[in-house]
C-alpha cells in the first residue's frame, strides 16, 4: 500500500513535470531552441495566480478562476518573448538564441523579484475537500485533481496535434518549415501558437505545483524547469508523447527514491536516470530514430 501511495505521489509530481516538459519539447520541435526561459514561466504563472486570487476574493468569485488568469497571462508572455527575443534571431546561429533564452530567464527572475520582493509568499489553499480513502490508501484531492486534469489536458493536446488543422500545421512546420510555407502555412502564427500553448501549460503546472508546495518565490521555476527539461530529453526532445511519458517516469522515480532510498539523493538519482537512459537510447525513450530514406 505504501508503494502505491508513493506511485500516486510520483504521478502527481510527474504530471507537473510533464505539463512543463511539453512546453520545452513543442518549442524545440518547431524552432529547435531549448527555451531555457520556459521554467520562469512557471514562476510568473504562480505570481500572477497569487495576485489574481486577491482580486477574485474581492469580487466574490471562486479563487480557482486564477488558473485562467495565469494561463492567459503566460500565453501572452510566451508569445511576446518569442516575438521580441527569439524571432529576430531566427536565422542566427543556434547558440545565439540559446544564450538569449538564458538572458530572458534572468530578466524574468529579477523583474519578478523586484515586483514581488525576494521573500517567499504563501499560496492560499485552493482545494479544501477531504482526501479520498480507498482501503488503507489516502489520496489527497489535490493529487487527484492534478493527475486527472493533466491527463485530460494531455489527451486533448494529443488529439489537437494529430487531428486539428492547426495542430497538423504545427507538425508540418516542425518537420520542414520551408515546405510548410509552400503549403500556405503562416510560419510566424504557427510558432506564436506553439509558444502560447507551451506557456499556458506551464501556468497550469504552476497552479498544480502551488497546490502541493504552497510557496511562491522568484527562484521556484529554476529547478522545476530543469527537471521538466530532463523529462523532455528523457522522453525524446521534440516528441510530444515523449514529454508526457518522460515527465511521469521522472516523477515516479523521484518519489520512490525519496521514499525508499534517500530524500537527499532524490535529485542525484533523477539525473542519474537521465544519464543511464541516454547511454542506451541517445534519442530518449520515444525519440525518433532519425534514419530516414532520402
Amino acid at each position: 500500500m505504501e508503494f502505491i501511495q508513493q506511485v500516486i505521489n510520483g504521478l502527481q509530481l510527474g504530471s507537473i513535470y510533464a505539463l512543463v516538459a511539453l512546453g520545452y519539447t513543442m518549442v524545440y520541435g518547431i524552432i529547435k531552441l531549448i527555451n531555457f526561459a520556459h521554467g520562469e514561466i512557471i514562476m510568473v504563472g504562480a505570481y500572477i495566480a497569487l495576485t489574481s486570487v486577491s482580486f477574485l476574493v474581492q469580487m466574490g468569485l471562486p479563487i480557482w478562476l486564477c488558473v485562467f488568469v495565469a494561463v492567459v497571462f503566460c500565453a501572452i508572455l510566451g508569445i511576446l518573448t518569442e516575438r521580441i527575443a527569439y524571432r529576430p534571431l531566427r536565422n542566427s546561429p543556434r547558440l545565439t538564441s540559446l544564450i538569449t533564452a538564458i538572458g530572458i530567464s534572468f530578466l524574468l527572475q529579477n523583474a519578478f523579484m523586484l515586483i514581488y520582493s525576494p521573500t517567499p509568499k504563501p499560496f492560499p489553499k485552493m482545494v479544501t475537500a477531504a482526501p479520498i480513502t480507498v482501503g488503507s490508501l489516502q489520496i489527497s484531492m489535490s493529487a487527484l485533481l492534478t493527475i486527472v486534469i493533466s491527463i485530460v489536458i494531455m489527451l486533448v493536446l494529443q488529439i489537437f496535434i494529430q487531428k486539428n488543422r492547426l495542430g497538423k500545421a504545427m507538425r508540418a512546420v516542425s518537420e520542414d518549415y520551408g515546405a510548410a510555407q509552400l503549403m500556405g502555412i503562416n510560419i510566424n502564427h504557427t510558432i506564436s501558437l506553439t509558444f502560447a500553448i507551451g506557456s499556458g501549460l506551464a501556468a497550469v503546472a504552476a497552479i498544480f505545483y502551488c497546490m502541493s508546495y504552497p510557496l511562491v518565490e522568484y527562484t521556484m521555476g529554476t529547478m522545476l524547469g530543469l527537471k521538466a527539461f530532463v523529462a523532455a530529453v528523457l522522453g525524446g526532445i521534440g516528441v510530444i508523447p515523449g514529454a508526457m511519458i518522460g515527465g511521469l517516469v521522472l516523477g515516479i522515480v523521484e518519489s520512490l527514491t525519496k521514499a525508499y532510498i534517500s530524500t537527499q539523493l532524490a535529485d542525484a538519482v533523477t539525473f542519474g536516470v537521465l544519464i543511464v537512459v541516454l547511454i542506451f537510447r541517445p534519442a530518449g525513450i520515444m525519440g525518433k530514430n532519425t534514419k530516414e530514406k532520402v
Binding site: 497538423k168 507538425r171 508540418a172 518537420e175 520542414d176 520551408g178 515546405a179 510548410a180 509552400l182 525518433k288
Partner: peptide, 12 residues
Amino acid sequence: HVPEGRRVFAGM
C-alpha cells in the same frame, strides 16, 4: 511549388 528534393513531411 514542388521544391527540389521533394521535401515531403517525412513524419506525417
